[in-house]
């Protein structure tokens, strides 16, 4: 294949770089993939942008819109759905923190205490993923449901109110989000913890730090890249999710994803759905950029 050509012509770089060379080859290699991404990711984003400022002409058929550059669509869409908007970020934020709290000890255990079982445990972390995401969510809704095993057991307890419900509550939605994105948190955490040389921890102990101080001053800072990657990988999909809210929630736990979906399919109000999507994406990108800057980890890309 062509991309090794010209190996010996390299004039730049040190030892390992002799395979890098300026030529046409890389462009031929990236072209098909990039064209795909531009056509089906970049252009659609612009298409979404253009849809977001459209207006339905008076008396026109449902689903027919014309471009009038009406940026007020954004204001209208935001004001009408503030509640869901705020709720999305709130739920996603809580779910991310919970996932971090559950995953960190788990990843720590696999990285430092699992010995020869390390690989098996890693497979076990990913394994629940192999059952469909939706099936697992449905399973939770049935486990926590009014007829489910958890509530029927709880009802035997004297201090439990008969009318207690677990599904159709914010609790259920946040639990579902936490559960579904847990491996996205655990795996990056594990990857960065595993890279820590255990001797640095021993050195810390040798230098008069107790277990807790070692953890706080050595382990945590060294695992920061994993924390950043894990929180992003959890927060981003959680903020845009609507499956958990739809299957585990009720109308008052709707997230922005649910609104976008229903605007598209139930209401056929494309401009509002587009404006909401655009706002969501922009907010997330800004948050992510600020977060990456603040945590000083640029190596994520």
């Amino acid at each position: 294949m062509a991309f090794l050509q010209g190996t010996t012509k390299s004039q730049s770089g040190a030892k390992g770089d002799s395979l890098k060379k300026r030529s046409l080859t890389p462009y031929l290699l990236i072209a098909p993939g990039l064209i795909w991404l531009i056509t089906f990711f970049v252009i659609p984003i612009f298409s979404l942008g253009s849809t977001s400022t459209m207006v339905r002409p008076q008396g026109a058929q449902i689903g027919t819109y014309v471009q009038e550059l009406r940026f007020a669509n954004y204001v209208d869409a935001f004001l009408a759905n503030q509640e869901q908007y705020v709720r999305s970020f709130l739920y996603a934020g809580i779910a991310t923190i919970l996932a971090l709290a559950i995953s960190y000890p788990l990843a720590y255990m696999i990285a430092f205490r699992a010995g020869k079982y390390r690989n098996i445990l890693l497979v076990l972390v990913v394994a629940p993923f192999f059952t469909s995401f939706l099936l697992r969510t449905v399973a939770w809704s049935q486990i926590l449901g009014d007829e489910g095993p958890v509530l029927s057991t709880l009802r035997f307890l004297p201090f439990i109110d008969e009318s207690l419900r677990l599904t159709a509550t914010p609790f259920a939605v946040v639990s579902g989000l936490t559960y579904n994105f847990l491996p996205f948190m655990t795996l990056p955490l594990y990857a960065s913890l595993e890279r820590i040389d255990p001797r640095t921890l021993e050195a810390s102990g040798d230098l008069y730090a107790n277990g807790f101080i070692t953890f706080r001053k050595v382990t945590v800072p060294l695992s920061m890249p994993g924390v950043v990657a894990g929180t992003l990988l959890t927060f981003i999909p959680a903020a845009g999710d609507y499956v958990n809210a739809a299957l585990l929630g009720n109308p008052s736990t709707k997230m922005i994803g649910n609104v976008i979906e229903s605007r598209f399919f139930a209401v056929v109000d494309y401009p509002t759905a587009a404006a909401l999507s655009f706002t969501l994406m922009a907010t997330i990108l800004i948050l992510v950029t600020l977060y990456i800057r603040k945590s000083g980890t640029d190596e994520l890309v």
Binding site: L34, L37, I38, F40, F41, V42, I43, P44, I45, S47, L48, S50, T51, L232, I236, P237, A239, G240, D241, Y242, I256, G257, I260, E261, F264, Y270, A273, A274, S277, F278, L280, M281, I284, L285, V288, L300, V301
Partner: peptide
């Protein structure tokens, strides 16, 4: 950057934008 962006975009936005283009 172009490789990173789709991973940093919520699925609902990816889905909605593609549908918006197909509809257009």
């Amino acid at each position: 950057l172009l490789i990173f962006l789709p991973m940093a975009t919520p699925e609902v936005v990816l889905g909605a934008s593609l549908l918006a283009m197909f509809l257009n």
